[in-house]
């Protein structure tokens, strides 16, 4: 298995505050990794470090290179969509294609054009005339036509309506992703991407609080909805968290024997968002 990104002791300080506090992680080829954390947790800083957009301490290798010194070589194999609205507004759609064709050696223009043909975007339109959703489609068309090894998405669907968001991740998964591609994504809308992720990293206050594959999460964590009369029994098993939903107590367990909790109520794999909230609370406690 090829390791695309390897960080050890990655730190970044703004003034006195640590945005990243000695973080270790690695990203393997063929994975879709969700980097999840509250605002100000260090997600964007981590992505910027990977993309060579910010200085940092510690060791970080992206495709075997140092993003501080070899940024533009790295960008041959790395694509990113930072935020949907950042394509230059004065460009026309066909100029955009021409430009990327001229500047990116791994761009396949006809691929981008055939993707755009499926949308309502016209080649002569200026980007400033496109809706936010269309700008995302255009950006996606560019990215999908680039033979990149790592795709970094930072809140790519922020401010888009649900149809575009669904379409966006549908295209990524259906037309883009394969075993040679790797995706690193951050988003607030965890529920929308958790079914496509292969791995999650939780980050809080500059530290990684959980780094697991989705498979091991379903082995490691269980969520049990318990009727109130058996809540004390559940509590005695040491849950990570407890919440109330529609009159039932919902407990989250880590590394607990499923046979112990099954009699208490309905058992299922927790959602990433619930797991995230529980983990952050656990850290804060």
């Amino acid at each position: 298995m090829t390791t695309l990104v390897k960080a050890s002791g990655l730190s970044k300080h703004y003034g006195g505050a640590a945005a990243l506090d000695g973080v270790d992680f690695q990203i393997e080829q063929g994975r879709i990794v969700g980097l999840i954390g509250p605002n100000g947790a260090g997600k964007t800083t981590a992505l910027k470090a990977v993309l060579g957009l910010t200085s940092f301490e510690g060791d970080l290798r992206v495709l075997g290179r140092d993003p501080r010194r070899e940024r533009h070589q790295i960008m041959q194999d790395v694509c990113f969509i930072a935020d949907v609205a950042v394509l230059p507004r004065w460009l026309r759609v066909k100029q955009t294609l021409e430009l990327v064709q001229g500047l990116h050696p791994k761009f396949n223009r006809s691929k981008a054009e055939s993707f755009l043909a499926k949308t309502s975007i016209k080649p002569d339109s200026k980007i400033s005339q496109l809706s936010k959703g269309m700008v995302t489609q255009l950006h996606l068309a560019l990215v999908m036509a680039i033979e990149a090894r790592l795709l970094v998405l930072d809140e790519p669907t922020l401010g888009l309506d649900i149809l575009f968001r669904k379409q966006f991740y549908g295209s990524i998964l259906g037309d883009y992703f394969d075993e040679n591609r790797t995706i690193l994504v951050t988003t607030h809308q965890v529920e929308e991407i958790e079914h496509i992720l292969t791995d999650v990293m939780f980050i809080d206050q500059g530290r990684i609080v959980l780094d697991e594959s989705m498979d091991s999460i379903s082995n490691r964590f269980l969520e049990v909805a318990v009727n109130p009369d058996r809540a004390d029994e559940a509590r005695s098993l040491g849950p990570v968290s407890e919440t109330e939903v529609f009159g039932r107590r919902v407990f989250l367990f880590e590394n607990v024997d499923i046979d112990h909790v099954r009699p208490l109520g309905d058992v299922r794999t927790p959602g990433i968002a619930d797991l995230f909230v529980a983990k952050i609370k656990e850290q804060a406690a």
């Binding site: 993309l51 957009l53 940024r71 533009h72 070589q73 790295i74 960008m75 041959q76 694509c79 990113f80 969509i81 930072a82 935020d83 609205a85 950042v86 394509l87 230059p88 507004r89 990327v100 500047l103 990116h104 050696p105 950006h139």
Partner: peptide, 18 residues
């Protein structure tokens, strides 16, 4: 201008040195 309209992140996503 490219910083003001934040399109510098798009330009920086292309493999061209500063």
């Amino acid at each position: 201008a490219e910083r003001k309209d934040r399109s510098n992140l798009f330009w920086k996503s292309l493999p061209v040195s500063d």
